[in-house]
Design a protein around this nucleic acid. Structure first.
Length: 271
DNA sequence: CCGGACGCCTGTCGGC
DNA sequence: TGCCGACAGGCGTCCG
């Protein structure tokens, strides 16, 4: 599921339920995620107050009095806030029981997600240290992308999906942003002008901001903390629309694999 | 350093 | 109806 808009939607949804609450207990029913949940995680966080809930790329960072609880939703993860007594389903792997009788429940059918405690600052964690800039912040500029793209022969789509270049852009929004910017997804990153990369930066910002405003995209697994879907799926211009007409020029939307990922584009207006 | 392929998992869908 | 392969929103690791 979750690209930046879905993680940010989750963050905003759960934040009011977590802030200032104490962690009564961390219940791990299934520790076998992308990386196994370390056995001492529950005792590291038990009794601690939640001071802040932040997002870095697709990671959620829960600041505690001691250290930080890191959470990644992987491909199929979602978070719900529920009464603690609610019976868990088959893929409800983790419950964070809160001091007010609610719990934060992590569901992840494919188990590509992660949960682990780390000492502050979380930014020093090996998985976060080398991440690129946040796409909605000023450091992600046309000049930055142009400089990073210099000499790179990888396709622009693969390039913007690389979290070391810019965080948060996954397969859906890479396709959408490239369509908005009229750039063919298979064009070599290093062979695109600075002016066009500046347009792409704006397109990435616009599509992510619009998706956040709609509560993200729900295709399969993603739901908000209250169980409702996000509504951006209806705004998708090319993703999942192979064979349909391009909303800009009426051309044919193609689908092909680029970098092992399904890619959608209009060959008429994306160059 | 770079680019491409490969796993890790489960669920679903289309074709035969 | 059942089986089987392909595919699905991520990403670290390995290899050439």
């Amino acid at each position: 599921m979750p690209e930046l808009p879905e993680v940010e939607t989750s963050r905003r949804g759960i934040e009011p339920h977590l802030l200032g609450r104490r962690i009564e207990q961390l219940e791990v029913r299934e520790p076998r995620l992308r990386w196994p949940v370390p056995p001492d995680t529950a005792e590291r966080v038990a009794g601690q107050r939640i001071l802040a809930l932040r997002r870095r790329g697709k990671y959620l960072l829960c600041d505690l009095a001691q250290g930080v609880l890191m959470l990644h939703l992987g491909m199929s993860g979602s978070l719900r806030v529920l009464p603690t007594r609610t019976a868990p389903g088959a893929h409800d792997h983790i419950d964070l029981h809160l001091s007010d009788g609610q719990c934060l429940r992590f569901r992840d059918p494919r188990r590509f997600g992660m949960l682990q405690w780390t000492a502050a600052p979380a930014e020093a964690h090996p998985l976060l240290r080398a991440l690129g800039p946040e796409p909605l912040e000023p450091a992600f500029s046309g000049a930055y992308l142009h400089q990073r793209a210099r000499g790179r022969r990888a396709s622009i789509k693969t390039f913007i999906m690389d979290s070391h270049v810019v965080v948060g852009v996954g397969n859906i929004y890479a396709n959408e942003a490239l369509h908005l910017a009229r750039i063919h997804p298979n064009r070599a990153a290093g062979r695109i002008s600075g002016a066009r990369l500046a347009v792409l930066v704006r397109a990435i910002r616009d599509v992510l901001a619009a998706a956040i405003a709609q509560g993200g995209t729900s295709l399969r697994d993603f739901v908000r903390e209250d169980g409702k879907p996000g509504y951006f799926a209806q705004s998708l211009r090319v993703y999942g629309r192979a064979g349909q007409p391009c909303p800009r020029c009426g051309g044919h939307i193609h689908q092909r694999r680029i970098g092992q990922r399904s890619s959608f584009y209009c060959a008429a207006c994306q160059r």
